[in-house]
Design a protein around this nucleic acid. Structure first.
Lengths: 199, 199
DNA sequence: TGTACATCAGTGAACGCGCGTTCACTGATGTAC
DNA sequence: TGTACATCAGTGAACGCGCGTTCACTGATGTAC
């Protein structure tokens, strides 16, 4: 076999993490093998050990990647508009898009295999989701300050309900092999949700 | 090793399916090994092959078990009360309890490992969830007939949102190792949800 | 500018562990006579 | 009621595959002089 191009470790680490997430998305955690990831990156299995100590370390970098993707969406919608309700709406659809393109995300979050024997990893994912929810809460709070959102409701509860608008729909979309229309559901559900939280 | 008691195949099949689900709940899918399940049932690994053709068949029976548990909850709340909103509320808390006791359920539903190479299995789980949602829709429809629930809302959307009240909370509960108070969240969320769907 | 050398991302063969599965054998249980 | 036999749930040793990981080696790249 002809040798692959030599690239810096930082570049390869990024490629490997993304390839791993994609593999999990397409084939599931069990199929996320060193060989599979290596093939996707265009390297030989043993080459991955130049960039990661072992498979566990690879998974950790995938978790970091997920955190970054979640929080980047918040930044993006914050730049797009200053209106809290509009921010929420856009975040909703960006989140749907993110999960559509990275089905591996819910799979990892739910999978005990990732956490088994690694409690610190569970904490890490928990912190990432809390950070994401915290950003949503901040948007909600801003909406309450601007009197667009009912002040008697708990921002924490609302932010979790916000996630709830997407999650079951994402499962159905996934189980139906893309047949279920998530966007359509999200629009209807968001309207009801909006009616519940506005004064 | 002294031989285990000899029991009928139907009994063992049930024991094995439950043991498998418990193992998935506690250790994750990867740890759901033939050896692990056998130990839990009190048999030797090879003994399981007296009751199932192979591991795949075992997993299928776990999927059947999940379906039964979901639908049984609907039956139970239907027997408990005739009031649609009360039925929904009770179903919500029964569902939470079910997931608390069987953390393996969301893990299986989300796991691609279970479906990889077995499209019919994905369909099976999809059908189970659709059946469950259909029951919820029936309750919602009844509520609309009795004018307890707004008639301009789509029962399908509402039933999916109903699942959304639980799911994100279940994740947080799971990731926080039981520290997050699902019941408390469910109460708050259900109140907001109720406010949104009642006239 | 050219040469020598250190560095380091790549390769492929080999290993060992875990785990699903098979198979010959055992011995308890229920049934036919 | 007792005996012979078929049935079938149990056992444990052995297998083979997949996969993560190691290691000696290669050869390109950048740097010191």
């Amino acid at each position: 076999m002809v040798s692959a191009e030599k690239l810096g470790t930082e570049i390869r680490q990024g490629q490997i993490a993304r390839a791993a997430l994609e593999l999990i998305a397409h084939q599931g955690l069990k199929k996320m093998s060193i060989a599979g990831v290596a093939r996707r990156v265009g390297l030989v299995p043993s080459a991955l050990y130049r960039h990661f100590e072992n498979k566990e370390e690879m998974l950790d970098s995938v978790l970091d990647l997920i955190r970054e993707m979640l929080l980047r969406n918040v930044e993006l919608v914050s730049q797009e508009t200053a209106d809290p309700l509009e921010r929420l709406k856009r975040l909703l659809f960006r989140h749907i898009q993110l999960i559509r393109e990275n089905r591996g995300i819910p799979r990892i979050v739910f999978s005990e295999d990732v956490y088994a024997g690694h409690p610190e990893r569970k904490t890490k994912v928990f912190e990432s989701i809390k950070a994401y929810l915290h950003q949503v809460e901040k948007i909600v709070h801003q909406g309450q300050v601007e009197a667009q959102i009912r002040r008697d409701l708990d921002p924490g509860t609302i932010s979790i309900m916000f996630l709830g608008l997407i999650q079951p729909a994402a499962i159905l979309w996934h189980l139906s092999d893309g047949h279920f229309d998530v966007t359509k559901h999200a629009e209807k559900a968001y309207r009801i949700f909006c009616g519940a939280i506005t004064p």
